[in-house]
Design a protein around this nucleic acid. Sequence first.
DNA 1: CGTAGACCCTGCGCGC
DNA 2: TGCGCGCAGGGTCTAC
Length: 274
Amino acid sequence: MPELPEVEVLRRSLEPLVMGDRVRSVSVAEPRLRERVDAQRLEALTLGRMIVGTRRRAKYLLIDLELGSTLVVHLGMSGCLTLVPQDAPRLLHEHISIGMNSGRRLRFEDPRRFGLVFALETEQVESDRHFAHLGIEPLSDEMSGGFLRNLAKSRRGPVKSFIMNSEIVVGVGNIYACEALYRAGIHPVRSVARISRDRWGRLANALKGTLEDAIRQGGTTLKDFADATGREGYFRVSLESYGRAGESCGRCGGTIRRRIQAGRSTFYCPSCQT
DNA sequence: CGTAGACCCTGCGCGC
DNA sequence: TGCGCGCAGGGTCTAC
């Protein structure tokens, strides 16, 4: 489900609803996520504490609590974090439930269990193994054509893999990689060694623009993405290449194609992406 | 060292 | 209606 825009949309919808609220109960119905949930540690670092802020790093949602702890949530492919009334029924794949003093509960669902939920000391976040090797935030000022070009010097391989590599730049998954390359007019298979200075600049702008537009439109709901209140995103209607194999390219009239690249579907226009 | 592929897991839509 | 197959927005580990 979620790439950077979806996690950011979730964060923005969640923050005003939970700020100042306090954790009253923690319940782990199914600890077998991508990494086993340590229910005791989760409870020890959250129970009785007030939520003082939210942040996002890459595709991780960080919920900061008083007394210096942070609750970390990663949605994987099928994860969903919503705020529901305390008495809402527990769903089949509701693996973690966090009851709040306000009488609501944070519901973490994840059918495929590729997600992550854990807690740590706030000051340990940066050095934690999940965060220590992450690249730059694409919406930060660090992102530029020069930055990408510079890192590409020591690398090989197709540009799509490059922009999806979280050690280079974070938050770009399969959908937005396809969309950004489409906007930049760059073929996804093109080697990073054969991209001009000019085109690195266009790619950096396309990444920013695509991610910003997607956030503005509430993210992309293909199947099951929703924000903290259950609202779906509508960037899906703005997708120009992703999922459009066989349709005509809105830019040149060619036909959008699909191919498998590094095990994932890549959508592109073979005539205007070169 | 860097990259490709398998793998983790469930659910859905499709063709037969 | 039922079944098997391929596919899905994540990341990590292994084998080259």
